[in-house]
Design a protein around this nucleic acid. Structure first.
Lengths: 201, 201
DNA sequence: CGGGGTTGTCAAGTTGGTTGACATGTCATA
DNA sequence: TATGACATGTCAACCAACTTGACAACCCCG
């Protein structure tokens, strides 16, 4: 046997293509014009297969969000790796994520450049129903911190709290940016550094 | 529906990957060490699937040959397109094919650099059992000639004969090269030009 | 209100890869 | 030369996944 069977790789490919199609449609004509049928047609598959693979249209949105999240977490991982100071690592990661948030066509489309032109259904995923996003991102960031073997004056549970807070700040800054990425990241770093100092002193 | 269904594209992909695996094994360790099992393993598929897709090991060799041939014919098509003189077109095509014959790792492996180190089974395909190759290549070349709308003093049947002869000369020069590609191609052009002159006069 | 388009779901049908088995053939080696 | 190891070629039974057709429910437009 091989590491990945042909079947499995095809399955992943199908998933990706379906999501690609949906994402393309979102970026071109908005979420409301995305159709399960059109996705099926574009990919060359039956509508049923789209449902089998992605579930309901609502779940499709969540899949899209999680996939985009994975791209963000990749950047986070890259930026944190090799740093010696936790705060530096976090700041670098935040900056990377915020910059990607500006570049990501999907994110920009969801958040909407013109006020009032949102797709409420999709936007909800990034905001009120972002539980899974926060959990996933939090877990990934924590893993990076563990990998980094930083010297931290915090208990494990306290690390969780701190990480979740940082993630929430970043998510907020992506959905409602108020300063350039570098500045926003620096601000987060400032708070974090103070908190750590407090924990130590 | 789409132009290509997902299923079809996957099928083609499987075929390609199987052939890639076989070709890689040939180039690394020779035809005799190519195993249906190894191909299956490398691609992540069952041995039976390899048989379903490619047939016997012998047929696998033919598939490989035909796929490589397709690459040659692509070059031929490129070189002939846009030429105004038939002979120039043919010479350009021959030169391209001969050069590719020198570069093609598969061809070089089959033909064998060291005398006596051939894989007889594979080699047969390029020589004694090259019927399908000649037919396919001939048809492709003839199509290029028709597309070119050249002014020819030959009947349709005579064109067939001429084309087949050229193809055979090229095939021979690939399996047993005696001069550099440009020279060999020029030689073919010389004969062809004479023949056409004879037909006109 | 009625038609058209979409979603979500189902069951039946088809394609095609998987698995295990077996006969056959070949080669190296004891 | 006998034999074990390995490869090929084929089968049948199995199972996973895509397809097809159909249907109820919903929404929006005219």
């Amino acid at each position: 046997m091989t590491v990945v069977t042909f079947r499995a790789s095809v399955q992943g490919q199908l998933r990706d293509r379906l999501l690609d199609s949906a994402q393309g449609q979102i970026e071109k004509r908005g979420w409301s014009s995305v159709t399960m049928s059109r996705i099926a047609d574009e990919v060359g598959v039956s509508r049923q297969t789209v449902h089998n693979e992605l579930g309901t249209k609502r779940q499709l949105a969540e899949h899209l969000a999680m996939r985009e999240l994975a791209r963000f977490l990749e950047v986070v991982q890259e930026r944190m790796a090799g740093q010696v100071d936790v705060v530096d690592a976090v700041v670098a990661a935040c900056e990377g994520a915020l910059e990607l948030g500006e570049r990501s066509l999907l994110v920009r489309t969801i958040v909407g450049s013109v006020p009032g032109e949102h797709d409420p259904d999709l936007l909800a995923i990034l905001t009120v129903e972002s539980g899974e996003i926060i959990d996933t991102a939090g877990a990934a960031v924590k893993q990076c911190i563990l990998d980094g073997a930083f010297d931290l004056p915090l208990t494990d549970a306290e690390v969780d709290v701190a990480v979740e807070s940082v993630v929430r700040l970043v998510l907020s800054a992506i959905t409602r940016p108020s300063k350039p990425p570098a500045q926003a990241a620096a601000d987060i770093g400032w708070i974090l550094r103070l908190a750590l100092k407090g924990a130590r002193g």
